[in-house]
């Protein structure tokens, strides 16, 4: 299962879901789906998120054994 730190890092930089969404060109809902683990983003979107949140992709997303 894909886990992520999007919510934690977004809070650290003080972004709302809408603000983060705008920076990576997706809707607020998509950011919410990612944070809840409901949706696994594409590599392109993962790279964009990592860039905005200033971390390596591997530090933002990782696989966890079920």
């Amino acid at each position: 299962m894909l886990k992520n730190r999007v919510k934690e890092l977004r809070a650290r930089y003080g972004y709302t879901q809408s603000e983060l969404g705008k920076q990576v060109d997706v809707t607020r809902q998509t950011i919410a789906f990612i944070e809840k683990g409901e949706f696994s983003p594409s590599i392109t979107l993962s790279l964009k998120l990592a860039k905005v949140l200033q971390v390596e992709v591997g530090d933002l997303f990782w696989l966890e054994e079920e």
Partner: peptide, 9 residues
């Protein structure tokens, strides 16, 4: 289908 998340749902 505004973006990949919305397309997914």
């Amino acid at each position: 289908e505004q973006d990949e998340g919305m397309t997914f749902i």
